[in-house]
């Protein structure tokens, strides 16, 4: 796709329906604009602009946020702030709520959307991605040929090859039977992109042992991913942050951690077990409360 320097002024198209949006995207010349928090920095960051943008943030289909059967449906244009507010009090979605409520800063959370967070390829530190991975979320994408539903894992793997003519419309999350927690590590107390994110989802059996676990890691590698070996290692054991930390320490070598200006790869790896432990400390507290 052609990129233009900051001095070129792209067009903005404002479709009234999702179908119209998909048709505008169909010839590949335009890109999606939702919250704008990534696109609008393009000029400053030397990333330039597309020929035109298709504004999707006001499409009613994409701003829905609510329950459908046992599933939570999150429209792509829902903002982090809206999601955080909606999830207040939903104790089984603490991990996702934390991700939505702690990312970036308040002004950005009021603009940045769920769809933007999931579809920005160059953003390893996206907070919602590990949270949704840990929840086995599914994403729905639409193009002129129709709608498809993908597991988030598959969507992430296909983002770079997926046609730009595709529009992510919503995310579907099934409420887990257990508890979830998310931890992010910033260099300051807050306000910078996390150098590591861990999102944990566990189900505890009647015997107090971990029956099932899903663990996702963000910002350590260029794309967030699941950590199945750690999850397996924890199943059948009590909910124990010290044990989880030891297991994470033993298995962290599976990651190929990225170097960045804010932290080198070794550091991201080094703190990973502690982040795992922190999610488990939160889960221990949640479990104790019940």
């Amino acid at each position: 796709m052609t990129r233009h320097a900051s001095t070129v002024t792209p067009d903005l198209h404002v479709p009234q329906t999702v179908q119209e949006a998909v048709e505008l995207l169909a010839d590949g010349a335009f890109e999606v604009l939702a919250g704008g928090t990534w696109v609008m920095r393009g000029g400053i960051r030397g990333e330039g602009y597309a020929d035109g943008y298709v504004l999707i943030s006001k499409l009613p289909d994409l701003t829905r946020l609510g329950w459908s059967d046992q599933s939570l449906v999150i429209g792509a244009a829902v903002t982090h702030a809206q999601l955080a507010t909606f999830l207040t009090g939903h104790t089984r979605l603490t991990g996702l709520a934390t991700a939505a409520a702690k990312s970036a800063n308040p002004a950005i959370r009021r603009a940045a959307t769920v769809g933007g967070n999931l579809s920005t390829v160059d953003f390893p530190a996206a907070d919602l991605v590990p949270a949704l991975l840990a929840l086995d979320a599914q994403v729905s994408i639409l193009d002129v040929d129709g709608e498809r539903v993908l597991d988030l894992v598959d969507y992430l793997a296909s983002r770079t090859t997926l046609s730009p003519r595709t529009l992510l419309t919503h995310v579907t999350v099934t409420v887990p039977p257990g508890f979830t927690a998310q931890e992010r590590l910033t260099m300051r107390s807050a306000g910078d992109y996390p150098v590591g994110i861990v999102s944990t989802n566990v189900r505890i059996g009647a015997d107090g042992l971990v029956e099932d676990a899903t663990i996702a890691v963000g910002s350590v590698e260029p794309v967030a991913r699941l950590w199945p070996s750690l999850a397996s290692a924890l199943i059948g054991h009590p909910l124990d942050s010290a044990f989880a930390m030891r297991m994470a320490h033993d298995l962290k070598g599976e990651f190929n951690a990225r170097d960045g200006i804010e932290a080198a790869g070794w550091y991201r790896l080094q703190v990973l077990p502690e982040l795992v432990a922190r999610t488990f400390r939160t889960l221990e507290r949640e479990a104790d409360l019940r």
């Binding site: 960051r45 300051r188 107390s189 807050a190 306000g191 910078d192 200006i261």
Partner: peptide
């Protein structure tokens, strides 16, 4: 390396 306030980390209120 630090082309803006993303990576040039000045103290914020919580710091």
């Amino acid at each position: 390396h630090q082309q803006g306030f993303e990576t040039y980390r000045v103290p914020l209120a919580g710091d």
